[in-house]
Computed example of a mutant assay.
Amino acid sequence: MTKQLLISLPVLLVFLYLCTTTFAQSPAEAPSRHQSAGKAHAPAAQAPAQPVAQSPAEVPLVQAPPRKAPIGPTNVTKILEKAGVFSVFIRILKNTQVINQIESQLNNSNNALTIFAPTNDAFSGLKAGLLNSLSTEQKVQLLQYHLLPSFVPISSFQTISNPVRTQASDTYEYPLNITTTGSIVNISTGIVNTTISGTVYSDNQLAIYKVDRVLLPLGIFAPRAKPLAPAPAPGVKKPKKEESSSSSSSSSSSSSLSDSPLASESVNASSGVSLTANAMASIGGAVLAAVFLWGQIEFAFV
């Protein structure tokens, strides 16, 4: 019994020592030791590099985002090419250099344009050889007839005043009348009647509308005489030139009458009558003188 106690006493002491050392550790330290024990076999992690303090002069400034290049004028050619049905219109614009005029106008923000763009089918509907028969000046006028010198949104055609002024010329030789029927916009040139079939492009400066016929102006395809000046009001004296011309015409008419054979016969007849009268008057005078003389002679003899 004594031996058993002596053997169990050291075991009990070892057990108590282990218990006291385990509970004496804090909860935070115990796992840290296990972690350190596990990290002993792993490679040491590199500590992050600490930023080196720099003087204010050495600290780089924050760069501003790059500025965008200024937006240029609207590229009318690209807009028409993207639509895909205006290749003939584009070709004529380039050949006549009217496209340069359009881009120059749009480059100024104070200018605005409205373009009626005929489709390829519209040009195909023209009489064969019609475009080739035009001079370069007439082609320029034809294209400018499709341009309005202002921005006209589709809703403003209802209140537009006719005839509409285009960039071609005056409204007498190049009239353009635009009317609306509900939501349909009608265009009349005096030769061609068509409608706007769609909006190709529109912003606050430029509007491009699709038309299915080429707008043919009267000034090129049906020239008409300008109206005469109004007649003078009644009671206004005629100019001296007209009076002199009338007098000269009367004198010429009289001279022409005198030259005619009937006029010469009448003149001869009148001259003959006057000669006969003169002869009779002279004979009568002679008779009276003889009678008077005969009376004097008889009186002398008595």
Rank of each mutant, 00 (worst) to 15 (best):
I79V: 01
P227M: 10
S251P: 00
S155A: 02
D121G: 12
L12F: 08
Q63E: 11
S55D: 03
G285Q: 09
P230G: 07
K127V: 05
T180K: 09
P118I: 00
S155M: 04
K127E: 14
Q144Y: 06
D203L: 02
W294A: 14
F151N: 15
S55T: 06
D170E: 10
T181Y: 09
A289I: 13
Q4I: 07
L262Q: 12
S256Y: 07
N193I: 04
P239H: 10
L257D: 13
I99L: 07
Q101C: 04
A28Y: 13
L131D: 02
I7S: 04
I154T: 10
P163F: 09
V192F: 03
S161E: 15
F89P: 03
T194E: 01
L142Y: 02
Q50T: 15
V88T: 09
P51K: 05
T159F: 15
S260W: 10
Q105M: 11
A69M: 08
A281C: 07
Q54T: 06
I178D: 01
L16N: 07
I92Y: 09
D212N: 15
V302G: 12
L61Y: 11
I160D: 00
S26R: 09
S32F: 03
A229C: 10
K241V: 13
T22E: 15
A222H: 08
N268L: 14
Y201M: 00
A168C: 03
R67S: 12
S258L: 13
P163L: 05
